[in-house]
Amino acid sequence: MENKEILLKVRNAKTYFPIKKGVLKKTVGYVKAVDDISLDVYRGETLGLVGESGCGKSSLGKSILQLVPVTDGSMEYKFEDGYKDLRKLSRTELDNARKKIQIVFQDPYSSLNPAFTIFGSLEDPLIKFGIKDKKERIEKIGKLLEDVNLPRDYMTRYPNEFSGGQRQRIGIARALSVDPELIICDEAVSALDVSIQAQVLKLLNKLKEERKLTYIFITHDLSVVEYLADRIAVMYLGRIVELTTSEELFANTLHPYTKALLSAIPIADPTKKKKRIPLQGDVPSPANPPSGCTFHPRCPDCAEQCKTERPILEEYIINGVSHFVSCHKVKAALEAKGIKAERSK
């Protein structure tokens, strides 16, 4: 990133869901879905967000759009008249912000109104957007559908008449329809076959170049994120454990969790039934996270310090590239690899 214009500044964001028990529905604890996350999103970049199921990726995405109650922290978005905390916007301001920030939901079905045709669903935002002429709207929606490899006249169909992957593509078309600045894509291509996936990924990249679109791309598919992302954030149990450019992450993987994640990728070759290095131990519960480093019970490099002391996300500069990592053993990892790194600030 040459000119790093920060579009979104997330600081110490926390989203806790109460756990209720008994007839009186007393709160007995919290699921810490997002637990003290800070990160910057630059204009025009694709930020990949990866991590195992249940670690809080969707919750972070929804928190940014204020679609779930955020417990604490700030999320400053750069509007025409400067940064404003999305948590503190008025109703109308938030409605406006939600035009600039779109989300493609992980579950595409529940996000489409079953009573409307696709045209009906996609037309509404366009009218609000100021496209008064119906012909023009039809033209625009038709073009969007073609962009995601769907025939134009599918716009007269209802959501339940589509296959899983078709619905997912409609979700993408809808997000693109209002010319947003930031799109949060939550597992947006997970149901697509490799060819259509490639087509959609190319489209997203093209739009990024043309319109300087920004993406937060949530996925568990590392080959997708490697292709798309400028930077990758790795999440574990509600926190970010590693964050750097895509090239740097694959070249100098520092966090033991990221290493395990990368070792587990299946390859499309039946002659090589691959052995994985599975993570030891169970996935801990975000309601009752382990002490110290939350990864310690499963970490092959775990030391005494890790069991009691929570590591913080620290920035290192490696060959001029910023690399955030949160691990007590990072010095040893750097030395073992013979990497020279400076601590930033």
């Binding site: 490799v194 490639a198 292709y227 694959f250 499309a268």
Partner: peptide, 19 residues
């Protein structure tokens, strides 16, 4: 054609996806 359009891990952003 389908087998050819699989993205390969390790080639990064320089890889040409072939839909």
């Amino acid at each position: 054609a389908l087998l050819r359009s699989i993205p390969v891990l390790g080639k990064g952003r320089n890889q040409q996806l072939e839909p």
